[in-house]
């Protein structure tokens, strides 16, 4: 197991290297510099800034310096907020996104899983049709339609919840529901089709033949098999959650990582954009690894390759 984990960690290196290289060259080859648009800066100031951040050196020197820096887990200084490092910026804004993401994914599991399982157990019943309608609607209504609609109903008409901003638990409700909708749909679909498969397998028939009650068969025998693909979905789900938060954070004015990313991209804050992109890909890789380890524990038949 340990050897395999180390192997997987080593396999991550080329991915991280590729992301770092792509972002580096993409951003450096782009027209415009982080300081060129600032009218307030005099040429001497810009020259000094370029000197300070090493932007006047040859491209390959900058590239190797950047890679060297990365080896020390240092994402460099921000070119927009002078005196702040990218590490600091990520550390400050990430907790908001994590809070939002965790809340959304918990809602998705709590709603999606029972929905999918019930619709498989009561196949072709009203519950099934209702659940599948919810699943299709969930993927068809984009978060930037759902979010404002919820705001319109619950904040501007009923005055139950705050329409935007961040801080208390009340502020978390609408954004996390908005973000969770698509995941409810995915999870309901995945668990339904897996549950259907499990229910038609031999060991379930055996369990029924022993005379167990349907409830016992489902909770004790079928459930475990049905949740496995949901666990493996959790890895890619993290990557999707992170992109999803970009929009949701914008709708509800939440100071999370996605919000900072868009701001940085529009302001040509090279190092912040590169840093966040890199951070997201590393986080996704680690999450996928954790999910695979968990899968190996849940289902001994899945060999950890």
């Amino acid at each position: 197991m340990l050897r395999l984990i180390i192997r997987r960690l080593l396999l991550m290196l080329p991915v991280i290297f590729t992301v770092a290289s792509i972002t580096f060259f993409l951003l450096r080859l782009a027209p415009g510099s982080p300081f060129a648009n600032e009218k307030a800066f005099e040429p001497q100031v810009i020259a000094a800034l370029n000197e300070k951040y090493g932007l006047n050196r040859p491209l390959h020197v900058q590239y190797f310096n950047y890679l060297k820096q990365l080896l020390k887990a240092d994402l460099g200084p921000s070119t927009r907020y002078i005196g702040r490092s990218v590490n600091e910026i990520i550390a400050e804004h990430l907790p908001h996104s994590i809070k939002l993401g965790l809340a959304a994914y918990s809602i998705a599991l709590l709603v999606g899983l029972p929905l999918g399982i019930l619709s498989a157990v009561y196949k072709h019943s009203i519950i099934d049709y209702l659940a599948m309608a919810i699943a299709v609607i969930g993927v068809s209504v984009p978060s930037f339609v759902l979010g404002p609609t919820l705001v319109l109903i619950f904040s501007l008409t009923l005055f139950w919840l705050p329409p935007a901003r961040w801080g208390s638990l009340e502020h978390l409700v609408l954004p996390s529901i908005t973000l969770s909708a698509a995941y409810i749909a995915y999870i309901a679909r995945i668990s339904r089709s897996q549950m259907l498969e499990v229910l038609s397998s031999d060991y379930i028939r055996t369990a029924f033949a022993k005379g167990l009650s349907p409830w016992t068969v489902i909770t004790r025998h079928a459930l475990r098999g049905a949740t496995i693909p949901v666990v493996s979905f959790s890895g890619p789900a993290l990557a999707l959650l992170l992109t999803g938060t970009i929009v949701v954070e914008r709708i509800f004015a939440i100071p999370g990582l996605g919000h900072v990313f868009i701001e940085a991209a529009n302001a040509r804050d090279y190092s912040v954009v590169m840093g966040i992109t890199l951070f997201v890909s590393i986080a996704t890789l680690i999450m996928n690894l954790l999910v695979d380890i968990l899968l190996g524990i849940l289902d001994p038949r899945i060999s950890f390759k």
Binding site: P14, V15, T18, V19, I22, T23, L26, L27, A30, P31, G32, A239, L242, T243, I246, F261, I262, A265, N266, R268, V273, I276, T277, V280, S281, T284, L285, N288
Partner: peptide, 18 residues
């Protein structure tokens, strides 16, 4: 390899900078 890249983030970089 391409699968594990953060696509939308890269697309956003691309659209924002070019």
């Amino acid at each position: 390899l391409l699968y594990s890249l953060p696509h939308l983030f890269l697309v956003i970089c691309f659209l924002a900078f070019f």
